[in-house]
Computed example of a mutant assay.
Amino acid sequence: MSKNTSQPYLIPLLALLAAFPPIATDMYLPAMELLQNTWQASLTGINLTLVLFFTFFSLFLLIYGPLSDRFGRRPVLINGISIYIIGSFLCAFSTSLNQLIVFRCLQAIGAASASVVALAISKDVYQGKKREHVLAYITMIMAIAPIVSPMIGAIMVDYLAWPWLFISQALLGGIALYGCIKLKETVNQLVLTSTRDVLISYVKLLRNSWFRQHNWMQMCSILPMFAFIGASPAIYMDQFEVSAQMYSLLFALNAFGLMAGAFVFSKLRNYLAPRYLMLIGKIGILLASLAMFLFAGDAVLQDFVICMLVITFSIGVMRPVTNSQALEGVKQFAGTASAILSFSTFVGAACSMYLVSLGSVLTPWQWVAVIGMIGGAFSLWCWVMTASAAKQYVS
Score class of each variant (00 low, 15 high):
2 S>M: 12
3 K>W: 14
4 N>F: 05
6 S>M: 07
6 S>G: 06
8 P>F: 01
9 Y>A: 10
12 P>H: 00
12 P>K: 00
14 L>F: 02
14 L>M: 03
20 F>I: 07
20 F>T: 10
20 F>S: 11
21 P>L: 05
22 P>G: 12
24 A>C: 08
32 M>I: 11
35 L>H: 08
36 Q>H: 03
37 N>W: 14
37 N>C: 13
40 Q>I: 09
42 S>I: 13
46 I>G: 02
48 L>V: 08
51 V>G: 11
53 F>A: 14
55 T>N: 10
57 F>A: 15
65 G>F: 04
72 G>S: 02
78 I>Y: 04
81 I>S: 11
81 I>T: 10
84 Y>N: 08
84 Y>F: 05
87 G>K: 01
94 S>Y: 05
94 S>C: 04
101 I>G: 06
104 R>W: 01
105 C>Q: 05
107 Q>G: 08
109 I>R: 03
111 A>C: 07
111 A>F: 03
113 S>K: 03
118 A>M: 08
119 L>Y: 15
123 K>M: 08
129 K>R: 09
129 K>A: 10
135 L>Y: 11
145 A>S: 10
145 A>H: 02
151 M>D: 11
152 I>M: 04
160 L>I: 15
161 A>M: 13
170 A>H: 07
170 A>K: 06
171 L>F: 12
171 L>S: 13
175 I>C: 14
177 L>W: 00
177 L>F: 01
179 G>W: 00
183 L>F: 04
187 V>K: 08
189 Q>S: 11
210 W>F: 13
210 W>C: 15
223 L>W: 03
225 M>S: 14
225 M>R: 07
227 A>R: 04
231 A>K: 08
238 D>F: 15
242 V>W: 06
247 Y>K: 06
248 S>R: 08
250 L>R: 02
250 L>N: 02
250 L>Q: 03
253 L>G: 01
253 L>P: 01
255 A>D: 03
262 A>D: 00
265 F>D: 09
267 K>G: 04
267 K>N: 02
270 N>E: 15
271 Y>E: 15
274 P>G: 02
275 R>Q: 15
279 L>H: 07
283 I>C: 12
287 L>P: 07
294 L>C: 10
295 F>I: 14
300 V>L: 12
307 C>V: 15
308 M>Y: 09
308 M>E: 09
312 T>A: 11
321 V>G: 07
321 V>R: 05
327 L>W: 00
329 G>R: 10
335 G>K: 02
337 A>M: 04
341 L>C: 10
342 S>H: 07
344 S>N: 08
347 V>P: 00
350 A>C: 03
350 A>N: 02
353 M>S: 04
357 S>N: 08
360 S>N: 13
362 L>R: 03
362 L>C: 07
363 T>M: 03
365 W>L: 13
366 Q>L: 03
372 G>S: 05
373 M>I: 13
377 A>D: 12
381 W>H: 15
385 M>F: 05
385 M>L: 13
387 A>V: 02
389 A>R: 15
393 Y>T: 01
395 S>A: 10
